[in-house]
Structures are given as structure tokens and as C-alpha cells.
Write a protein that binds this DNA or RNA. Structure first.
Length: 480
RNA sequence: CGAGGUGUAGCGCAGUUUGGUAGCGCGUUUGGUUCGGGACCAAAAGGUCGCAGGUUCAAAUCCUGUCACCUCGACCA
């Protein structure tokens, strides 16, 4: 009976099959990460989901500060004239901009865009703020939401409004701007690997795939369990593409008036989707400890018996004091078995079972969410043991994800091999650099160029598409 | 945006073909017995049938529009 019910319950919770999409939707809803709202394409992020985002923010913000950036806040509304100043930028974003045309019941003389991204407003302010080489670099970041009128949306992966951070910097020299662009890309890579436990391919985008208005765009690309690519972060070098139309000029040491060199870089709540689709399994979510709002859940066993709840509270207190995010599940309406399943679904990395037998033996029973390994832990020095276990779970999640990524990446030499490879993973291939080949691959296989790794050691000499001489190493995959 | 599918109680569904009193399971509440992997018994509460129009004496059911979700495609930095 109980078994049947369980099978029925997990029926849809199965990644890695043709129902991956349904599995994803089930997870975000059942784990209480978000809910749909009356606003088309805009979701409400619930406490558990937002808690994950807050931890991501903390980790990233600390890295931004450590690399010399400061946070600011810019207006949500951007006058149309500003948006029109950079031609490629307008062309790229115009189709998905929402406009404010009225205020206080009166028609506006100039309509205002709800920001789809803030390059233009940052540029406008930088033009006011930067006068001398002494003012540079200016390295600012903002945490905000942006709005893009997307045609089709999916929770966390692509929503009309989404939370993100956008860093915008201006520099005196091209070299410095390029260094910043790559440094922030590497912050993203390190964050993905060490905090999200997601391995990524880091590299440069093709001209076709680069950001509207950028001279060069770089990205970190993750691989989901269905083999598809998800771009989890981007970093752009604008050169003077924006500083010229926006007149961001400064007087340099040599007395010459020069245009500033600009960068921007961003990551969003989409990373939550990446975490779900990288680590999740048939039981639901699997959270890396570093971003788990609850790292340890304590489930009292036979809680009606004297002393169990008190012991749980005491253990929780000790863990909290050690900086561990812990919660005691003292709900009296659910059985222990129910709670086990519930917290496994929600992806809590570690469960501690505390029952009379444990207490008698001066121990708790620890169960890992990732491996389901069950082991007794002595109460003495428990916080240190838990810290070690959490670190082990974090490490293990990354290694399993890395093994998956490696196992689903292979060299493709021709279109046949490429077709087979992008069906469930990434293809590493030689590319001649022609736009026509990218277009053909997109049209015939539904795959796009993801990025060019920094390590350009050739894996052949002929373009995977046209067969002509090629010297660019490119990753191709189907993408979200 | 194109093709197809779904929308009925918190969740999962039946009822729609052929218009005529709103149903089932799970969950919830209360009481009792349980308690180391989704407990059991009893009683109770809970629904604008996605939303808006229309046809009809009468609409969950027929018609039109619209919104949301799922699948495939298109588009997308």
C-alpha cells in the first residue's frame, strides 16, 4: 500500500527521460520554490526558492567586493532616447521591451522603457561621473530585476521579469577592460564550480551569439541532465561601442581626451534552474550544501517519548552556533517516514535522525541526500563532523556532475557525428568561423555554438559543417 | 508565434460524446490508537467546473474569445 503510493508519487519525478520538462515543473512546484502569478510570464519566488537566491547573492556579492566592485542602484525606467543611442543594442532588445507611456493619468512626452538591461543608463551616468583618469576605473554592480517580454517562459529558466545582478565597469585602457571581462567570467566559473557544484565550459561566444552591442562576449555554459546547454553567466567587453555614443570621456595622463573602455557581466535566478537540472533526481531536488537554505534537518523519532524533542533542540542549538543552517522538523502530524521523503524531495543535503536508541548511544543517525549513506555520528564534536560531511556532499555533487559533463562531451568531426552528439550532450568540434556554418547547424540539427574554450588545442583541421580548413575549436549543443 | 494536448475541492482525477441536483481517491480539521522509511479507525469541513461573453427554460457539458501549463517546432544576448 505504502509502496504503491510512493511509486505513484514519484511517477513524474524522473529526470533523464523524455519527461524531463515535466519533471522540472513538478520539482519547482512541489519543492515550494515558486508559484505562478496573474502576471503573464512573471513568477512569485517563495521563501524556499528565495532563500537559495539569497545564499547565491551572498556568495557572489562577497566575490564582487573582493575584486573591487561597489553596489549601486539605477532607475528601473529608461527614456527611449537613451535606448536608441547604440544601434546594435536597440536592434537586439527592441522586440522585447515593455513601455510606460502614461504617468499620473497623463501621456508622457517621451515614453519610458522598463529596463531589459541597464547598459544605457549606466553609460549615461558614467558620462557624468568620469572626468579624469583619476576617476577610473569605475566598477559598479547592481542587484535588481529586469523585464523582457518573452514569448514563451519557464520558471527560473526564462521568465519575463527576473532577478539578476549586472556589473558595469569603465576603464582607461582596452587591456584593463579585457582583463576585467575575463576576471569576472572567471569569478562566475569559480562560483559555479565551488558554490553551485556545477562544472562549466568557459569561453568566448561567436559573433552570431554575442551580446547586442558587445565587441566580445564570453560565457560559462553548464550541462543539464538531458544533455542540453544552459548559459549560466555572461561577461562582455564593449570596447568603446557604448562610450562613443554616450560620450564617456576622460582626460588621460597625457592630456588627451579619450573614450572609456567598458564591460558588463551578469548572472540571474536562472542559476536556480541550473542547480535543479544539474543535481536533481527521481526523488526531487538535491541542493549543494553551500546554497541550501536548510543544510541539516533533524527528524525526531518517537517524539512522543520523553526527552527526544529536548535533545533535538539542544543538538540544533549546537549546530547553529557553529554556523550550520539547521531545522528541527517537530511537526506532530506527520510520521518519520513521511518527513524523510519530504525533506529528500526538498533536497536538504543532510538528515539527522534522533531517536531514543540514538540518545542512549550518545549519537545521531546521519543520512546523506546525495548517496543515501547512513551512518551514526557521535554527539561529541558533532558540529565538526557535520561540517566535514557537508563539505563531502558538496565535493561529491561536483564530481558526479563533472563526470556527467565529461561523459556527455565528445569530439564531432562531421555533421553525422555532430547530430549524434548534440542529441544528448555537447560536441567539441572544429569550425571554420563562417556564420553560414553556424546557421546550417542550427537549421539542420537545432544546435547552436556555445563558446570557444580558451584552450584551443585543435581536435582536427576541417570544419565540422563545410569540411573546409578550420582552426577554431567550438562547443556545440542544443540550448535552453 | 505555429501545430497538438490539458484546465472540475489544496493535490491527482472521473463526469463533457448524447445539456437536466457536483463525484471519487489523497490531503485538511476534530477525537482516539500509533510512532526507527510516506500509519490506522471514526466523524466533519471544503468546489465562482481557468476566466469573459454567447446559445438555451436549463451549460462543467454546445459556440466564440481569452489566460495558464505540457509536448514538438520557430524566436531569443
Amino acid at each position: 500500500m505504502a509502496k504503491e503510493k510512493q511509486q505513484e508519487f514519484v511517477q513524474h519525478l524522473t529526470p533523464r527521460d523524455e519527461d524531463f520538462s515535466q519533471w522540472y515543473t513538478d520539482v519547482v512546484l512541489k519543492c515550494d520554490l515558486m508559484d505562478y502569478t496573474p502576471v503573464r510570464g512573471c513568477m512569485a519566488i517563495k521563501p524556499y526558492g528565495y532563500g537559495i537566491w539569497e545564499l547565491m547573492q551572498q556568495e557572489m556579492d562577497a566575490r564582487f567586493k573582493a575584486t573591487g566592485h561597489k553596489n549601486v542602484s539605477m532607475p528601473m525606467l529608461i527614456p527611449e532616447s537613451l535606448l536608441l543611442k547604440e544601434a546594435d543594442h536597440v536592434e537586439g532588445f527592441a522586440p522585447e521591451v515593455a513601455w510606460v507611456t502614461q504617468g499620473g493619468g497623463e501621456e508622457l512626452t517621451e515614453r519610458l522603457a522598463i529596463r531589459p538591461t541597464s547598459e544605457t543608463i549606466f553609460c549615461t551616468m558614467y558620462a557624468k561621473w568620469a572626468q579624469s583618469w583619476r576617476d577610473l576605473p569605475m566598477k559598479y554592480n547592481q542587484w535588481c530585476s529586469v523585464l523582457r517580454w518573452e514569448k514563451s517562459t519557464r520558471p527560473f529558466l526564462r521568465t519575463a521579469e527576473f532577478l539578476w545582478q549586472e556589473g558595469h565597469t569603465i576603464h582607461a585602457t582596452p587591456e584593463e577592460a579585457q582583463q576585467e571581462t575575463l576576471a569576472m567570467l572567471d569569478v562566475y566559473r569559480e562560483f559555479c564550480e565551488n558554490v553551485l557544484a556545477i562544472p562549466v565550459y568557459s569561453g568566448q561566444k561567436s559573433d552570431k551569439e554575442k551580446f547586442a552591442g558587445a565587441r566580445a562576449t564570453y560565457s560559462v555554459e553548464a550541462m543539464m541532465q538531458d544533455g542540453k546547454a544552459l548559459q549560466t553567466g555572461t561577461s562582455h567587453n564593449f570596447g568603446t561601442n557604448f562610450s562613443e555614443p554616450f560620450q564617456i570621456q576622460f582626460l588621460d595622463k597625457d592630456g588627451a581626451l579619450k573614450y572609456a573602455h567598458e564591460t558588463s557581466w551578469g548572472t540571474s535566478t536562472r542559476m536556480i534552474g541550473a542547480v535543479i537540472m544539474t543535481h536533481g533526481d527521481e526523488r526531487g531536488l538535491k541542493l549543494p550544501p553551500r546554497i541550501a537554505p536548510i543544510q541539516v534537518v533533524i527528524v525526531p523519532i518517537a517524539a512522543h517519548k520523553g526527552g527526544v524533542l529536548e535533545a533535538c533542540a539542544e543538538i540544533a542549538g549546537g549546530l547553529k552556533a557553529a554556523g550550520i543552517r539547521v531545522e528541527v522538523d517537530d511537526r506532530d502530524t506527520y510520521s518519520a517516514g513521511y518527513k524523510f521523503n519530504d525533506w529528500e524531495m526538498k533536497g536538504v543535503p543532510l538528515r539527522l535522525e534522533v531517536g531514543p536508541r540514538d540518545l542512549e548511544a550518545r549519537q545521531v543517525t546521519a543520512v546523506r541526500r546525495d548517496s543515501f549513506e547512513k551512518a551514526p555520528l557521535a554527539l561529541d564534536g558533532l558540529p565538526q563532523r557535520i561540517q566535514a560531511l557537508l563539505a563531502e556532499v558538496q565535493r561529491s555533487l561536483y564530481e558526479i556532475a563533472l563526470a556527467f559533463q565529461q561523459a556527455h562531451t565528445a569530439v564531432a568531426r562531421d555533421m553525422r557525428e555532430l547530430a549524434a552528439q548534440v542529441n544528448g550532450g555537447y560536441a567539441k568540434a572544429m569550425w571554420c568561423g563562417e556564420r553560414a556554418c553556424e546557421d546550417a547547424i542550427k537549421e539542420q540539427l537545432g544546435a547552436t555554438s556555445r563558446n570557444m574554450p580558451f584552450d584551443q588545442t585543435p581536435v582536427g583541421d576541417a570544419c565540422v559543417c563545410c569540411g573546409k580548413k578550420a582552426d577554431i575549436v567550438m562547443y556545440f549543443a542544443k540550448a535552453y
